[in-house]
Amino acid sequence: MQKLQIIQDRVARQVMFALAAFAGLIVFLMAFGLFVRSRPILESFPLFELLSSSSWHPLKGEFGLFPFLLGTLWVTGVSIVVAVPFSLLCAIHLSEYATRRICEWVKPLIDLLAGIPSVVYGICGVLIIVPLIKNHLAPLFGTFSTGYTVLAGGLVLAVMVFPIIIHVALEVFSSVPYEVREASLALGATKWQTVKLVVLRKAMPGIIAAIVLGISRAFGETMAVLMVAGNVARVPKSVFDPAYPLPALIANNYGEMMSVPLYDSALLLASLVLLLVVVFFNILSRFVLIHVEKGIQ
């Protein structure tokens, strides 16, 4: 009886170890799987040409990803420019100024914002932001626009990125010891001076990590952007131009990709590029965050 239990225990240990190892390896498996599938196109064209060519004509066998890369960069850039000031101000407000009662109200709402599915964001983008740009913002700047633009994609993404930056920034702020704030206050600094000169300074690496996590989220977000960015395979020249971000490209063409030679390989290469960029950003910011956390103990 005793022996059986010990054997059970040992088997369980092996199984658990194997599962943990599997979980740890998923990222690598993904990269490997996508790489294997994108090899056909990498063998047909040099990688540099694929990434730098602007001509995307799958039927003619031309797979230039440049417009899509730039589309992603534009949309991500706009979203970060909008999201960073708002999220940081909000995070500072919650961590340094707001009473506990306000925090208890606001934080769950921000969590809720994080839980809203991206199609719902997309719908709201189509219903609110796209008309706003078409009817008000574009005329204001003297241009015509359908509303389905870089700006629309960026604004929708910004709202989706708020919760991530706020969440990570709050954790970073809470890791700044209270006594450092106290030291500054005791010298007669105002609260804002303390925040600006001490808290933000101490939290800077963590804040950058928060922003990078936000960027990587925006970089890979698919459905919401797909619905509002316009999807025209041309390099955007202004925020009122349509964009065709990489994730949108992948999602939009799953239907026909098996019937055109190399098409599937091109799309899986696009996924691989997306994966590698996002993983790079994530590793970077996680390292910083681990460092920040250790610095406290």
């Binding site: 979980a23 740890g24 990222v27 989220r217 890979g220 999602a251 996924s271 994966l275 996002v278 993983v279």
Partner: peptide, 29 residues
């Protein structure tokens, strides 16, 4: 090993869902 796994899972958390779709597709193929 555990720290590495946790780290890897955190990174996986940040991977966009479209990439999960694409990877799922390669598995299915």
């Amino acid at each position: 090993f555990v720290s590495a796994c946790r780290f890897s899972l955190d990174v996986l958390w940040g991977v966009p869902s479209i990439v999960f779709g694409a990877f799922g597709f390669t598995i299915m193929l």
